[in-house]
Nucleic acid binder design. Structure first.
Lengths: 209, 209
DNA sequence: GCAGGTGTTAATAGATCTATTAAACACACA
DNA sequence: TGTGTGTTTAATAGATCTATTAACACCTGC
């Protein structure tokens, strides 16, 4: 086994991983071939199998870390201190930023998990209790606020779906949206900055009694 | 050429179209094989090519009508009469229903158009002025309401994105959502009935001054 | 009854893809 | 120099996919 490279140019194994990630995100598992991965990485196709044995293996290698990392980050957001609206605004903003940083993964995650439910089960198992932790605390707060008449009556699941919809949907259709509206990258980033604030305001406004 | 069937059991050509549609929607173009289409339709694989010559051909045959029809319906929704909030509620509800009836198409449309921008350009050309008609009228109303202080200040594009996000996102992740929450079809339908009202209320609430 | 059209299948060509194997290559080090 | 180890390639087996072709079954009009 070779020492991991430090500050050298990437070796072939790493280049394969890099190109594989690009292609998998861009075209999905089925439409990506090991031949194409090899071509982009600049090596023989057999080498892809030498390092990773199977395409499936390579796929999970590429994904495993990324996906688990993404959800871990997403579900570990800390609501922090302050009143409910402050905490809520913070969580919404953090989630928006996390999705934004993984923009190209959004659509990919949805399609791959939809098409392969087994992968989803696996992820659920790996994440364990993480989801319930973040949500339990927020739901408790929500019920208290409703009881105190400080926000209108709403099911927790609805609030959750509303936030996720507003935060994620634009990233799901981002390439489409840019093309339809004819936006440059720079204009898109500006719009996203603006959207983050607008989403927070929309959710908070919609919760007023 | 044979007469189109009336009230008889579907002929093989129609069954191929039906099964092809299911598979394309479910797994995308690349992951669907003509062999599998034939198997589900209950015929020899050669027959698929007999009727449609190529897989690409079959794909556009299946899609062409559906997609154009969907967007036509979506963009032809009539705001009708009444004050702004009434009209808005009607448009949101109609859009929700249209997407709901085409539930399985939502994710498919996004992925296919994202992966093949040319198809999108073609669709834009075919739809022509339709999009601007619906939106121009609503935007005008919105500005008037803001000026009159009856709703809070908001960009029209933000309102549009909010509505579309809330209406569409759940359908994009519907299979995932059902699996994660362990919902039956019946439970899901009940949730969707509820969501429709909740989305309308969320949008209207969020617009209060 | 049979000639011709339509629907259907079996067989197969040809392409491409995954995965394996054996051999060539490069380099370290005794 | 030679041997060993890790990297890379060429060649290829075997599977699967798209598409074509030739043959078969069945109906219909003459």
């Amino acid at each position: 086994m070779k020492e991991t490279n430090r500050s050298e140019e990437p070796n072939m194994e790493e280049r394969i991983l890099t190109e594989a990630e690009k292609l998998f995100f861009e075209k999905g598992f089925a439409a990506t071939s090991t031949t194409e991965i090899a071509r982009l990485a600049g090596c023989n196709q057999a080498l892809v199998h030498y390092y990773f044995r199977t395409k499936e293996n390579l796929f999970t290698k590429v994904l495993g870390g990324k996906v688990k990392g993404f959800f871990n980050e997403f579900l570990s957001v800390n609501a922090g201190e302050g009143d409910f609206k402050t905490k809520l605004a913070r969580v919404i903003g953090c989630h928006f930023d996390i999705i934004r940083q993984n923009s190209h993964m959004t659509l990919f995650l949805i399609t791959e998990f939809t098409r392969d439910p087994l992968r989803l089960e696996e992820l659920k198992r790996e994440l364990g209790e993480l989801p319930s932790q973040l949500f339990a605390s927020l739901e408790e707060d929500l019920q208290r606020e409703i009881a105190a008449g400080r926000i209108r009556k709403i099911e927790f699941i609805d609030l959750l779906i509303n936030i996720l919809s507003l935060n994620a949907f634009l990233f799901v259709v981002k390439p489409l949206f840019m093309q339809i509206c004819g936006l440059t990258d720079q204009q898109t980033e500006a719009l996203l900055d603006h959207r983050k604030q607008e989403i927070i305001q929309t959710i908070l406004s919609s919760l007023r009694p």
